[in-house]
Simulated assay, not measured.
Amino acid sequence: VDSPFHASVKFRDLQAEKLMANAGGPPGMIEGRLEGFLDAAGKTADSNAISGRGEIFLRDGKLEQYSLLVALGQILQIDELMQLHLEQAEVHFHISPGIVTIDQLLLRSPNIRLSATGTIDFNGKLHLDSQLALNDKIRRQLFAPIRENFQPLNQPPGYAAVAFHVSGTIERPKTDLMERVVGHDLRDLGGVISSLFGHGKKKKAQAEPSPGASLAPSPSPNDATASPPPNEARPAASLAPAPTP
Protein backbone atom coordinates (compact mmCIF):
# COMPACT_ATOMS: atom_id res chain seq x y z
CA VAL A 1 0.00 0.00 0.00
CA ASP A 2 1.42 3.36 -1.05
CA SER A 3 0.46 5.54 1.90
CA PRO A 4 1.67 9.09 2.57
CA PHE A 5 3.50 9.70 5.83
CA HIS A 6 5.01 12.49 7.89
CA ALA A 7 7.63 11.95 10.59
CA SER A 8 9.27 14.38 12.97
CA VAL A 9 12.07 12.93 15.10
CA LYS A 10 14.32 14.51 17.71
CA PHE A 11 17.28 12.66 19.20
CA ARG A 12 20.11 13.29 21.65
CA ASP A 13 22.99 11.50 23.40
CA LEU A 14 23.39 8.91 20.64
CA GLN A 15 26.87 7.38 20.61
CA ALA A 16 28.54 8.31 17.31
CA GLU A 17 31.05 5.45 17.42
CA LYS A 18 28.31 2.85 17.91
CA LEU A 19 26.20 4.27 15.09
CA MET A 20 29.25 4.28 12.79
CA ALA A 21 29.97 0.63 13.62
CA ASN A 22 26.33 -0.39 13.07
CA ALA A 23 26.42 1.32 9.68
CA GLY A 24 29.48 -0.72 8.69
CA GLY A 25 32.00 2.09 9.14
CA PRO A 26 35.50 1.70 10.60
CA PRO A 27 35.60 1.45 14.41
CA GLY A 28 37.36 4.14 16.40
CA MET A 29 37.28 6.81 13.68
CA ILE A 30 34.74 9.09 15.35
CA GLU A 31 33.73 9.62 18.96
CA GLY A 32 31.16 11.82 20.68
CA ARG A 33 27.43 12.25 21.28
CA LEU A 34 24.95 13.05 18.52
CA GLU A 35 21.84 15.19 18.79
CA GLY A 36 19.53 16.81 16.27
CA PHE A 37 16.24 16.41 14.46
CA LEU A 38 14.74 15.13 11.21
CA ASP A 39 11.43 16.28 9.74
CA ALA A 40 10.42 14.28 6.65
CA ALA A 41 7.40 13.38 4.54
CA GLY A 42 6.83 11.06 1.60
CA LYS A 43 5.21 7.84 0.44
CA THR A 44 5.85 4.43 1.96
CA ALA A 45 6.21 2.68 -1.42
CA ASP A 46 8.59 5.22 -2.97
CA SER A 47 11.78 6.00 -1.06
CA ASN A 48 12.82 8.52 -3.72
CA ALA A 49 9.76 10.64 -2.95
CA ILE A 50 10.95 11.62 0.54
CA SER A 51 11.43 15.32 1.29
CA GLY A 52 12.26 17.22 4.44
CA ARG A 53 15.09 18.78 6.41
CA GLY A 54 17.27 18.13 9.42
CA GLU A 55 20.25 19.06 11.58
CA ILE A 56 22.87 16.94 13.35
CA PHE A 57 25.33 18.13 16.01
CA LEU A 58 28.28 16.20 17.42
CA ARG A 59 29.13 17.03 21.04
CA ASP A 60 32.52 16.28 22.63
CA GLY A 61 33.59 15.01 19.24
CA LYS A 62 36.88 13.53 18.10
CA LEU A 63 37.85 12.43 14.59
CA GLU A 64 40.93 10.24 14.20
CA GLN A 65 42.45 7.46 12.09
CA TYR A 66 40.97 8.93 8.90
CA SER A 67 43.62 7.78 6.42
CA LEU A 68 43.65 10.88 4.18
CA LEU A 69 43.98 13.30 7.11
CA VAL A 70 46.62 11.08 8.74
CA ALA A 71 48.72 11.06 5.56
CA LEU A 72 48.26 14.80 5.08
CA GLY A 73 49.10 15.48 8.72
CA GLN A 74 52.33 13.52 8.48
CA ILE A 75 53.41 15.18 5.23
CA LEU A 76 52.65 18.66 6.60
CA GLN A 77 53.83 17.71 10.11
CA ILE A 78 50.53 18.88 11.65
CA ASP A 79 49.65 16.59 14.55
CA GLU A 80 46.20 18.12 14.91
CA LEU A 81 45.13 16.78 11.50
CA MET A 82 45.83 13.23 12.64
CA GLN A 83 43.47 13.57 15.62
CA LEU A 84 40.88 16.34 15.46
CA HIS A 85 39.42 17.30 18.83
CA LEU A 86 36.28 19.01 17.58
CA GLU A 87 35.05 22.16 19.28
CA GLN A 88 32.21 22.38 16.75
CA ALA A 89 30.78 19.69 14.46
CA GLU A 90 27.44 20.09 12.72
CA VAL A 91 25.60 19.46 9.47
CA HIS A 92 22.47 21.17 8.16
CA PHE A 93 20.66 19.52 5.27
CA HIS A 94 17.42 19.24 3.37
CA ILE A 95 15.95 16.35 1.42
CA SER A 96 14.30 16.49 -1.98
CA PRO A 97 13.26 13.49 -4.12
CA GLY A 98 16.38 11.39 -4.67
CA ILE A 99 18.88 13.88 -3.22
CA VAL A 100 20.16 15.06 0.15
CA THR A 101 21.52 18.60 -0.11
CA ILE A 102 24.20 19.54 2.41
CA ASP A 103 23.54 23.20 3.18
CA GLN A 104 26.47 23.37 5.59
CA LEU A 105 28.89 20.84 7.05
CA LEU A 106 31.42 22.21 9.52
CA LEU A 107 34.13 20.50 11.57
CA ARG A 108 36.19 22.89 13.70
CA SER A 109 39.12 22.13 16.00
CA PRO A 110 41.26 24.75 17.79
CA ASN A 111 43.35 25.56 14.68
CA ILE A 112 41.62 23.84 11.74
CA ARG A 113 38.26 24.13 9.94
CA LEU A 114 36.81 21.61 7.48
CA SER A 115 33.64 22.68 5.69
CA ALA A 116 31.55 21.47 2.76
CA THR A 117 28.36 22.05 0.78
CA GLY A 118 26.86 19.96 -2.00
CA THR A 119 24.70 16.91 -2.61
CA ILE A 120 24.52 13.21 -1.80
CA ASP A 121 22.34 11.14 -4.11
CA PHE A 122 20.14 8.41 -2.67
CA ASN A 123 22.38 5.93 -4.52
CA GLY A 124 25.35 7.20 -2.50
CA LYS A 125 27.09 9.44 -5.05
CA LEU A 126 28.93 12.43 -3.56
CA HIS A 127 29.26 15.92 -5.04
CA LEU A 128 30.75 18.14 -2.33
CA ASP A 129 32.59 21.45 -2.69
CA SER A 130 34.83 21.53 0.36
CA GLN A 131 37.40 23.69 2.10
CA LEU A 132 40.32 23.04 4.45
CA ALA A 133 41.26 26.14 6.46
CA LEU A 134 44.23 26.63 8.80
CA ASN A 135 44.79 29.53 11.16
CA ASP A 136 47.91 31.69 10.84
CA LYS A 137 49.70 29.81 13.63
CA ILE A 138 49.57 26.52 11.71
CA ARG A 139 50.01 28.05 8.26
CA ARG A 140 53.32 29.69 9.23
CA GLN A 141 54.75 26.24 10.01
CA LEU A 142 54.21 24.95 6.46
CA PHE A 143 56.86 24.53 3.79
CA ALA A 144 56.79 27.74 1.69
CA PRO A 145 55.43 26.29 -1.63
CA ILE A 146 52.63 24.53 0.27
CA ARG A 147 51.88 27.61 2.38
CA GLU A 148 51.23 29.59 -0.81
CA ASN A 149 48.40 27.21 -1.78
CA PHE A 150 46.38 28.41 1.24
CA GLN A 151 44.66 31.71 0.41
CA PRO A 152 43.64 34.16 3.19
CA LEU A 153 39.93 34.28 4.09
CA ASN A 154 37.84 37.31 4.95
CA GLN A 155 35.70 35.16 7.24
CA PRO A 156 36.77 33.94 9.65
CA PRO A 157 39.70 36.38 9.96
CA GLY A 158 43.12 34.92 10.64
CA TYR A 159 42.53 31.82 8.49
CA ALA A 160 43.74 30.74 5.06
CA ALA A 161 42.14 27.95 3.05
CA VAL A 162 42.43 25.63 0.08
CA ALA A 163 39.33 24.48 -1.81
CA PHE A 164 38.89 20.86 -2.87
CA HIS A 165 36.23 18.52 -4.24
CA VAL A 166 34.82 15.25 -2.91
CA SER A 167 33.29 12.81 -5.40
CA GLY A 168 32.85 9.05 -5.72
CA THR A 169 30.45 7.29 -3.37
CA ILE A 170 29.92 7.08 0.38
CA GLU A 171 31.61 3.65 0.35
CA ARG A 172 34.47 4.81 -1.92
CA PRO A 173 34.92 8.58 -1.67
CA LYS A 174 37.43 10.36 -3.91
CA THR A 175 39.04 13.75 -3.40
CA ASP A 176 41.67 16.02 -4.91
CA LEU A 177 42.59 17.46 -1.48
CA MET A 178 46.13 16.07 -1.48
CA GLU A 179 46.90 17.51 -4.92
CA ARG A 180 45.38 20.89 -4.02
CA VAL A 181 47.39 21.13 -0.80
CA VAL A 182 50.82 19.99 -1.99
CA GLY A 183 50.49 21.31 -5.55
CA HIS A 184 51.86 19.82 -8.75
CA ASP A 185 55.52 20.19 -7.79
CA LEU A 186 55.62 17.34 -5.28
CA ARG A 187 57.14 14.40 -7.11
CA ASP A 188 56.51 10.76 -6.32
CA LEU A 189 53.69 11.56 -3.89
CA GLY A 190 52.50 7.98 -3.98
CA GLY A 191 55.89 6.80 -2.77
CA VAL A 192 55.90 9.33 0.04
CA ILE A 193 52.48 8.25 1.30
CA SER A 194 53.36 4.56 0.98
CA SER A 195 56.52 5.06 3.01
CA LEU A 196 54.55 6.90 5.71
CA PHE A 197 52.30 3.89 6.14
CA GLY A 198 55.18 1.40 5.88
CA HIS A 199 54.06 0.09 2.49
CA GLY A 200 57.09 1.23 0.53
CA LYS A 201 59.29 -1.46 -0.99
CA LYS A 202 62.95 -1.57 -0.09
CA LYS A 203 65.16 -0.55 -2.95
CA LYS A 204 68.24 -2.57 -3.80
CA ALA A 205 70.30 0.53 -4.42
CA GLN A 206 69.84 3.85 -2.68
CA ALA A 207 68.39 6.41 -5.07
CA GLU A 208 70.27 9.64 -5.59
CA PRO A 209 68.58 12.57 -3.83
CA SER A 210 66.60 14.77 -6.16
CA PRO A 211 67.60 18.45 -6.34
CA GLY A 212 65.64 20.91 -4.25
CA ALA A 213 64.18 20.74 -0.76
CA SER A 214 62.48 17.54 0.30
CA LEU A 215 58.85 17.64 1.48
CA ALA A 216 59.12 14.40 3.43
CA PRO A 217 59.15 14.88 7.22
CA SER A 218 62.66 15.14 8.63
CA PRO A 219 63.59 12.60 11.32
CA SER A 220 63.65 13.96 14.84
CA PRO A 221 67.09 14.34 16.45
CA ASN A 222 65.79 12.17 19.29
CA ASP A 223 64.92 9.31 16.98
CA ALA A 224 67.27 6.39 17.31
CA THR A 225 69.11 5.56 14.10
CA ALA A 226 68.80 1.91 13.26
CA SER A 227 72.15 0.27 12.50
CA PRO A 228 72.35 -1.71 9.29
CA PRO A 229 72.06 -5.48 9.66
CA PRO A 230 75.39 -7.30 9.78
CA ASN A 231 76.58 -8.93 6.61
CA GLU A 232 75.69 -12.55 6.38
CA ALA A 233 78.71 -14.74 7.12
CA ARG A 234 79.98 -16.72 4.18
CA PRO A 235 80.38 -20.45 4.73
CA ALA A 236 83.96 -21.26 5.72
CA ALA A 237 86.06 -23.05 3.10
CA SER A 238 86.68 -26.69 3.94
CA LEU A 239 90.25 -27.50 4.99
CA ALA A 240 89.84 -31.25 4.67
CA PRO A 241 91.78 -32.79 1.75
CA ALA A 242 89.74 -33.78 -1.22
CA PRO A 243 89.15 -37.55 -1.43
CA THR A 244 91.50 -39.43 -3.77
CA PRO A 245 89.65 -40.85 -6.75
Results as ranks from 00 to 15, higher is better:
residue 133 A to G: 04
residue 195 S to P: 05
residue 208 E to Q: 12
residue 195 S to M: 08
residue 104 Q to D: 08
residue 212 G to N: 11
residue 160 A to P: 06
residue 219 P to C: 06
residue 178 M to S: 14
residue 173 P to Y: 11
residue 134 L to H: 05
residue 145 P to D: 04
residue 130 S to Q: 02
residue 212 G to D: 09
residue 160 A to Y: 03
residue 209 P to H: 10
residue 178 M to L: 14
residue 119 T to V: 07
residue 127 H to V: 04
residue 171 E to C: 03
residue 128 L to W: 12
residue 147 R to N: 09
residue 128 L to R: 01
residue 183 G to P: 02
residue 194 S to A: 15
residue 205 A to H: 11
residue 123 N to Y: 11
residue 120 I to L: 10
residue 177 L to R: 02
residue 202 K to S: 11
residue 226 A to Y: 08
residue 155 Q to S: 13
residue 161 A to K: 00
residue 192 V to Q: 06
residue 218 S to N: 15
residue 175 T to Y: 03
residue 180 R to W: 15
residue 166 V to C: 01
residue 127 H to G: 03
residue 178 M to A: 14
residue 224 A to T: 15
residue 188 D to C: 08
residue 165 H to Y: 10
residue 178 M to Y: 09
residue 114 L to P: 02
residue 110 P to V: 02
residue 153 L to P: 00
residue 191 G to W: 00
residue 217 P to K: 00
residue 134 L to D: 10
residue 202 K to Y: 14
residue 144 A to F: 04
residue 113 R to H: 06
residue 162 V to I: 14
residue 171 E to V: 06
residue 119 T to F: 04
residue 175 T to C: 11
residue 130 S to A: 04
residue 209 P to F: 06
residue 220 S to D: 14
residue 184 H to A: 10
residue 132 L to F: 06
residue 210 S to I: 07
residue 146 I to E: 00
residue 164 F to S: 03
